[in-house]
Design a protein around this nucleic acid. Sequence first.
DNA 1: CGGGATCCGTAAAGATACTG
DNA 2: CAGTATCTTTACGGATCCCG
Lengths: 145, 145
Amino acid sequence: MDVRVSDTTLPQKLSVKPGTTPLDCAQDSSACAVIRSILARTTDKWSILIVKSLGRGPHRFSELRRAIDGISQRMLTLTLRNLERDGLVLRTVTPTTPPRVDYELTTLGESLWTLTEAFGQWAMSNRPEIEAARARFDARLDADL
Amino acid sequence: MDVRVSDTTLPQKLSVKPGTTPLDCAQDSSACAVIRSILARTTDKWSILIVKSLGRGPHRFSELRRAIDGISQRMLTLTLRNLERDGLVLRTVTPTTPPRVDYELTTLGESLWTLTEAFGQWAMSNRPEIEAARARFDARLDADL
DNA sequence: CGGGATCCGTAAAGATACTG
DNA sequence: CAGTATCTTTACGGATCCCG
């Protein structure tokens, strides 16, 4: 069922080889669910910011809370628990008074950090272009009305 | 398939000095909100899967709907609109009967695709380790009860 | 076929108060 | 200080109907 596009200029920079279809959700649907759960956990709003913050070394709970603007203590706790559960973050409790809890990235977490860092860099460097695209889109919507 | 993410932007294992705090959300809080909105849009559950599907070339609406298991037509429409608004996806309407709409990644979208692909690869290759960590964590919870 | 509009249930996020 | 528990609120997502 070859469907070609009748458009004028299709960049098509990516070479789509017939045999190579890596990571197709349709053909390995068993793994897909797990992958999706991993992606959902590792790429959600707060996880990215937490991993980013921990990328520069261990931090205490209150330090993270202050570093990540707008996060509630509940979301910080929940997200840290999930990251710990996935083996991305190590939690160290020092039972003093007052208690002290430090969080740090595991080796696995550090490998994830390089990816989130790349994501952050991408967002930073492409911010003007994205904002321009948004403005154009919204302007076109207004014009069509 | 040219998945080079490390060329210029990906920092490999930055040295973690105590004083240096690059990309801190606290010190550039104006940009932080925009970056967060970009990250929220580009890393949410469906966007990643759509970008991944479009990474192998243009697709129609119904193709995407079949390719992405579990997505509703509403979420597909909404997410595609948002991606289009951010300049990541190009929407081409062919006003035939029945109508035909094709979606493809823009150049900006392709640069994002390399990142999501890297994320997917990371999730795939680290899946066993993550599942093991989850099992360990859950087992420890049961033991503590 | 590719949506838009509407209604609605649920689950996640926020705010607040309390505790070891 | 680092959570837990509870309540409220939000918006996410699905189902349905409709139209060009």
